Computed example of a mutant assay.
Amino acid sequence: MTGGSINLVMALTLGVLYSVGFYLILQRSLMRIVIGTVIVGHGANLFLQLAGGPPGRPPIINGVPVEEMTDPLPQAMALTAIVITFALSTFLLALAYRSSVLLGHDEVRDDVEDRRIRRLQQRLSEDEDDDSETDDQQEAVR
């Protein structure tokens, strides 16, 4: 990488990491969600390291010229992302374990309340369609 630009291989690697991670997060199995979260976390870390640019000298004042210093912010953000990914994956693993103990599987089920709201919305949209058809028929008679 020269001049702060990102090369094609790293861009494709980031794209693959993010797409595979988000695909796994959208699955119903909690283990796949955990793996997807970890993969997205790795993609975020790689992105932050690439955003930091090429390696430089340590950012010590009066030690090196400012132009040669490396930016410490992406490294600090990558460390923060590692901690967040670890905490989230630990929490999701605990949920998956608890789900397998209580239910015998780790599949995420639909919420009963979500189904009720979806059926209500479908009924309301069907009623609106019926009302609009009745209005159209009445206008055609006039």
Rank of each mutant, 00 (worst) to 15 (best):
G4N: 06
G4S: 03
S5A: 07
I6L: 14
I6S: 07
N7T: 12
N7G: 13
N7M: 06
L8I: 10
L8G: 01
V9T: 07
M10A: 10
M10G: 01
A11K: 03
A11I: 11
A11F: 11
T13D: 01
L14I: 13
V16C: 06
L17S: 07
S19V: 14
S19G: 06
S19L: 15
V20H: 01
G21R: 05
G21V: 05
L24T: 03
I25N: 03
I25S: 00
I25P: 00
L26C: 03
L26Y: 08
Q27R: 15
R28A: 00
M31T: 15
R32V: 08
I33V: 14
I33N: 13
G36A: 12
G36S: 04
G36F: 14
G36Q: 14
V40S: 11
V40K: 08
G41Q: 07
G43L: 05
G43H: 02
A44W: 03
A44D: 09
A44K: 09
A44Y: 04
A44R: 07
A44Q: 12
A44H: 07
F47Y: 08
L48E: 00
Q49V: 08
L50C: 00
A51H: 07
P54T: 09
P55L: 06
G56I: 01
G56P: 03
P58N: 02
P58S: 01
P59I: 03
I61Q: 11
N62E: 13
N62G: 02
N62M: 07
V64Y: 15
V66H: 08
V66N: 02
V66L: 09
E67I: 13
E67R: 04
T70I: 13
T70Y: 12
T70L: 13
D71V: 04
P72D: 06
L73I: 15
P74C: 08
P74M: 05
P74H: 01
Q75E: 11
L79C: 02
T80K: 10
T80D: 06
A81L: 09
A81R: 11
I82P: 02
I82C: 01
T85N: 01
T85A: 05
T85V: 07
A87E: 05
A87P: 03
L88I: 11
L88Y: 03
S89A: 15
T90S: 12
F91S: 02
F91T: 01
F91K: 04
L92A: 04
L92R: 01
A94D: 03
Y97I: 15
R98F: 05
S99M: 04
S100T: 09
L102V: 10
L102R: 15
L102M: 14
L103W: 09
G104C: 08
G104I: 07
H105K: 02
D106I: 07
E107T: 06
E107W: 05
R109E: 02
R109G: 00
R109S: 07
D110Y: 08
V112E: 14
R116H: 10
I117L: 13
R118L: 09
R119T: 05
R119D: 06
R119A: 06
R119S: 11
L120Y: 12
